[in-house]
């Protein structure tokens, strides 16, 4: 096991963005800083800057996700890159080609950047290791979500959103609510919150949806675990809701969406436990009436749509940083 995280090069610079676990604070902050000017690009008449002109960005989606793929596509196009979308779950791997064969083929097409979504935790690490071993290390890999492991750009855009509304992280109490066990979003959020020095990080959920050692996810400092949502939301500054997949009703994890909503759905009444200026976030797509009440989702404390807008700028910042801009 190497001491250096595989997403950093020998000089400690960002070579790939694979995870927020082990991403140094200065790089994380730099991405957030870099994103700020990019939010203005969208407000111009010509929504483009030439930072990635002539570069080819391949969206490699081994698992379907129109929304995430679209945000990466917009980010790359606003940086003037050429974008190629590959929906691989329905093409080559179905014909028996291995993941690394696919990567070799695309590398041979002079790709500059791979944006990878895969159902297996760690798949982007495999790709990054393979590129390093085959002389393809000029190609940058961005993890767009791998299994239950990480969704680093989502974690970054969430941090950008918190900073936008709360200015700094040092006095905050933040709660992550829901299906942490299956959530790559939650893991990235928890790592980033810990790295940025949030003094009190809470997770709230039933025991069936929390990893065995959830208190150790964000490093040795630990976090507070709550099973009672009202208690967990008391005096928090930020509420980060997680999406609940319907298939969690199978496998004896939960009895029903109705019962889940009763215990862990965010209603105005439960939100009232948080600070009066608390913000409510959600990575989308939302299940109204399952993890969040419409009155909250559409209410004044929700910052769910600004998250989407900031997501484009943050992804532009990541791509620009990787391309050395």
């Amino acid at each position: 096991m190497s001491a250096i995280h595989p997403q950093l090069n020998a000089r400690g610079e960002l070579q790939h963005l694979l995870s927020l676990d082990g991403l140094p604070r200065d790089i994380l902050t730099r991405i957030l800083d870099l994103a700020t000017p990019f939010t203005e690009v969208a407000e111009r008449e010509v929504k483009k800057v030439p930072l990635l002109r002539g570069k080819s960005v391949f969206n490699l989606f081994f698992e379907n996700s129109t929304r995430t793929r679209t945000t990466f596509e917009i980010a790359a196009k606003r940086l003037s890159a050429d974008v190629i979308n590959l929906n691989i779950s329905t093409s080559s791997t179905a014909k028996g080609e291995t993941l690394l064969d696919t990567v070799d083929n695309l590398a041979a097409m002079q790709a500059d950047m791979f944006v990878v979504r895969h159902a297996a935790s760690g798949a982007p690490y495999l790709i990054a290791r393979h590129l390093a071993a085959t002389g393809g290390d000029h190609i940058h890999v961005i993890n767009a979500g791998d299994g239950r492991h990480a969704h680093p750009t989502q974690g970054l855009l969430d941090m950008y959103t918190i900073r936008h509304y709360k200015q700094d992280f040092e006095n905050l109490t933040v709660a992550v609510v829901g299906d942490v066990l299956h959530s790559r979003v939650a893991r990235s959020q928890l790592h980033a919150l810990a790295t940025l020095g949030v003094p009190e990080i809470r997770v709230i959920g039933p025991k069936t949806l929390l990893p065995t050692m959830v208190d150790r996810i964000a490093g040795p400092r630990g976090l507070r675990v709550f099973h009672d949502m009202r208690e967990g939301l008391r005096d928090v500054d930020v509420v980060m809701m997680l999406r609940l997949q319907n298939e969690r009703m199978q496998g004896a994890l939960l009895p029903s969406p109705q019962e889940y909503f009763k215990s862990y759905g965010l209603t105005p009444e439960k939100l009232a436990m948080a600070k009066s200026d608390a913000i409510v976030m959600h990575p989308g797509p939302m299940n109204r009436g399952v993890e969040i009440d419409s009155a909250v989702a559409d209410g004044g404390q929700a910052v769910i749509l600004p998250q989407v807008t900031f997501g484009i700028a943050v992804r532009m910042a990541v791509m620009a940083l990787l391309a050395g801009a």
Binding site: D21, A150, T212, M213, V214, R216
Partner: peptide
Amino acid sequence: DGEVASRLGLGGIP
């Protein structure tokens, strides 16, 4: 099913 599987998002064998 311990600290590493929790952190890496891998299915655990308790």
